[in-house]
Amino acid sequence: MRYLPFLISLSIALLFFKTPGYAQVSVGDEAPDFTYSSLSGIEISLSDYKGKVVYIFFYGAGCPHCKENGPITEHDIYQLFKNNDNFVALGLDTWNYSRSANQNFQAVTGISYPLLLSARQSMLDYYGNTTSYDRSVVISKEGTVAYKGTNFVFADTAEVTDTIEESLSEVVTSSEGPTTIPDRLSLSQNYPNPFNPATTIRYTLQKPGRVALKIYNILGAEVATLVDGWQSAGSKTLRWDATSPSGNAPPSGIYIYQLTTADQQITKKMILLK
């Protein structure tokens, strides 16, 4: 076989060729600090937010995945917690694209939290070289990594929001004492509101049990039942496309949505605009 010496050389070379690996942080480790310029030119450091829970969206300004998932970080994560003074969200461009590219990314995704430029080094600090974009990280009030996503952002939103909720409840515990721990059953304001043709409703169960989520018109007549059955604990997201069980589209107006568990009931309003 005239190729044998060649093949033997190849396999020996393969045995001895090594590439070096990278270090990265794990959950529980101290979060590596960073300082980057935001789109508006303000220098922002992670250490500025010591004592707060920080959500970080690692994105590439030119990355199609990130353009798809950016709205999810805005609506399913940031909008849920933005009114909490102990919560901050930051976006880090790990592709080091230009300021214009990041302005375009902001416009395309509708992200309203600060986007920081030229942040590639933080991707290496947090993930080594294991990914280059589209990851979620949550930093606890102590400045440690509370959650480090290993999948695209859309795939672990529930874990991220659970971690943020848990971390925020710890913030309250330490500052105001155990008597102020909030009840974990929660019903968020629907988004968008007003809406047409569909809206998203999010709620969190502190324990498994029978749950009903129903929609009533302003006269108290039931319009739709979105959930009626046993559910596990955790965050849930539902979407109502403004149709009744008969398939008819209800008219514009104020509607009431009500979450009922075995021992609690929460009611909120929403507006359908056509």
Binding site: S98, S100, N104, S118
Partner: peptide, 13 residues
């Protein structure tokens, strides 16, 4: 196109 002309190494567009 600004997405191409803008230099990522400068803050000024």
């Amino acid at each position: 196109d600004l997405l191409l002309t803008d230099n990522p190494r400068t803050f000024e567009v």
